[in-house]
């Protein structure tokens, strides 16, 4: 049946759902982010004990030691719900696709000095595995976290990291071939330079407190790794060594990192501002993971930076410390 409707103005009975109105007031038209996020997770009258975690409920705030009065205090400054996220990534993906196509059609790889290209492959290819672990870790945060406001962006982060692992694979195939991917994998598994990083990454994979995992992965490890690899090595060192065209291949990683950091920062800041106990926990977690991450990354940095690796790492550590201080989780100055 097709009815011809004239456009008429009808006064709505209400503007949004009650659970949204209880938070925002009844007179506000919520955004799609708010309507698709707030209070969406089942939370009352949960049935059955999880066979995989019988001591807790299916959705249980006690899977981290962080305590929040309201788990919907977390906000994603990007306001990503599924549609907004996937459309934003699709736009970026188009840019990546055309960069890769240009790189290939103009054979830009052949203009890169062999040594620079070799360094790029040596550095980037084992990082496929690091990104894959970040994918698993963020998937775990979504699975075991509490409240859609914080679990939803973890799932986006997980898929973004999978995207990065796959972009790195494509870069490997652009600059080299599948033998180089095998070689990168072998170095990840056996080369001494990579073993501290692999040990660290494997340790994160058995981490049970999901918020500690968020701190370790998204704030600390990524917070050192992305600036090191994509800003310091690719954009500076390798660009200066005839590898300017490499920077277009890794532009996504830089853009993504600074965008995702806005969400990571907002999340840490909100949790820390909730209570001194939360802030103390997060500070302790940062302290636990930061030194190890820095030590693990230094031999990797040396691959590309040689002797200046130590000073670059020091600079990155200071930057991360400043970032943590801004978020309300300052690290105590270590006794010299």
């Amino acid at each position: 049946m097709q009815i011809d409707l004239r456009t008429v103005a009808i006064e709505p009975l209400r503007l949004t759902f009650d659970h949204i109105a209880r938070r925002l007031g009844p007179d506000r038209q919520p955004s799609r982010y708010q309507e698709g996020t707030l209070d969406i997770q089942p939370c009352d009258n949960l049935q059955y004990r999880p066979t995989w975690d019988p001591a807790r409920q299916l959705y249980d705030p006690a899977r981290t030691r962080i305590v929040m009065r309201d788990w919907y205090a977390f906000k994603d400054p990007r306001q990503y719900y599924y549609g907004a996220w996937t459309m934003a990534r699709a736009r970026q993906q188009e840019a990546v696709e055309s960069s890769f196509a240009l790189f290939e059609s103009r054979d830009l790889g052949s203009l890169i000095p062999a040594e620079t290209r070799h360094t790029a492959l040596q550095l980037l290819l084992p990082l496929r595995h690091v990104a894959y672990a970040a994918n698993l870790n963020n998937t775990a945060m979504c699975a075991y976290g509490y409240g859609t406001a914080v679990t939803q962006p973890c799932m986006f982060q997980a898929m973004d990291q999978l995207g990065i692992a796959q972009y790195l694979t494509q870069i490997g195939l652009l600059l080299g071939d599948s033998a180089d991917l095998d070689d990168g994998r072998n170095r990840w598994l056996g080369d001494g330079r990579w073993q501290e990083l692999r040990r660290l990454v494997e340790n994160t994979l058995v981490q049970k407190d999901w918020f500690e995992l968020l701190v370790a992965q998204n704030l600390v490890i990524d917070g050192l790794l992305y600036p090191l690899v994509y800003q310091q090595v690719i954009d500076k060192r390798l660009a200066a060594a005839g590898g300017v065209s490499l920077t277009v291949l890794t532009a996504f990683m830089n853009d993504w990192f600074s965008e995702a950091a806005r969400w990571v920062d907002a999340t840490i800041k909100t949790a820390a501002a909730e209570s001194p106990a939360n802030a103390a926990l997060i500070t302790a977690w940062i302290a636990r993971w930061k030194q190890r991450a820095s030590d693990a990354l230094e031999p990797v940095a040396e691959l590309a930076l040689g002797e200046s690796a130590a000073s670059v790492m020091e600079h990155l550590n200071l930057a991360l410390e400043a970032r943590c201080a801004r978020l309300g989780v300052p690290l105590a100055k270590e006794a010299a």
Binding site: A131, T169, R185, W188, L189, E202, N203, L205
Partner: peptide, 10 residues
């Protein structure tokens, strides 16, 4: 599947 590996530290 090329991304995964058998862990050895854990």
């Amino acid at each position: 599947r090329g991304l995964a590996w058998e862990t050895s530290y854990e």
